Simulated scan of single mutants.
Amino acid sequence: MQKSTTFLDTCLPKEFPSLLVHTSESEVFQGIISVFEIDYFVRVEVARTSHRKLKLFVDNQLRQVLEPFSSILDRLSETCESAYEYLLNLRLLISRATAVSSVNDTWRKLRGSDLYRRLFDELCQVGWDCVFSIGEDLNEITFELVDAKERKHFLRCVLTDDYPSQAPLCYIEAPISFSFPWLKGSQPENDNLANIYRQCLQFIHEQQELFDVMDDWDNNTWILEPMESLRKHLYRRIALDSRCSLWIEISPRCPRGIPNLRFLGPEKNTAILRTRLGENLEKWNSQFYPRQNFEKLMNITFPSKPKTKEEKENGQLECGICYSGWLSGIGAPDIPCEMESCGKYYHTMCLYEWLRSLPDAHQSFDVYFGECPYCMHPIRVRKPEM
Rank of each mutant, 00 (worst) to 15 (best):
E25Q: 12
L123E: 01
L66G: 02
S26C: 13
S70I: 09
V100W: 14
V35R: 02
D121N: 13
Q64L: 11
T142G: 04
S95L: 04
P68M: 00
N139S: 12
R96Y: 03
E122L: 06
R75A: 15
Y40H: 01
G112R: 14
I38H: 03
E37G: 11
L90M: 04
F36I: 10
V35F: 02
S95I: 04
E122K: 02
P68R: 02
V46N: 07
R63H: 09
L87G: 01
V42L: 01
K53P: 02
N139E: 14
N89T: 15
K53F: 10
D137G: 12
L155T: 08
E140N: 05
V44Q: 04
G112H: 13
N60M: 12
E67L: 14
S101E: 05
E27R: 02
F154P: 05
T79N: 10
L110Q: 07
S133K: 01
A83M: 06
I141Y: 02
D114S: 09
K14L: 13
K14P: 11
C130D: 07
F29R: 05
L54Y: 11
W128E: 02
F120V: 15
N104D: 10
K55L: 07
R63T: 04
R63A: 10
E78G: 11
K14S: 03
V146M: 00
F29W: 10
L115R: 04
R43D: 03
F29Q: 03
I38W: 00
L90S: 01
D137S: 07
I38M: 00
V28L: 05
E85L: 13
L73W: 03
L155R: 01
E15I: 15
L90N: 10
C124Y: 15
D59C: 06
R108L: 11
E140T: 10
F132E: 07
V28E: 09
F132G: 05
V35H: 03
T23K: 11
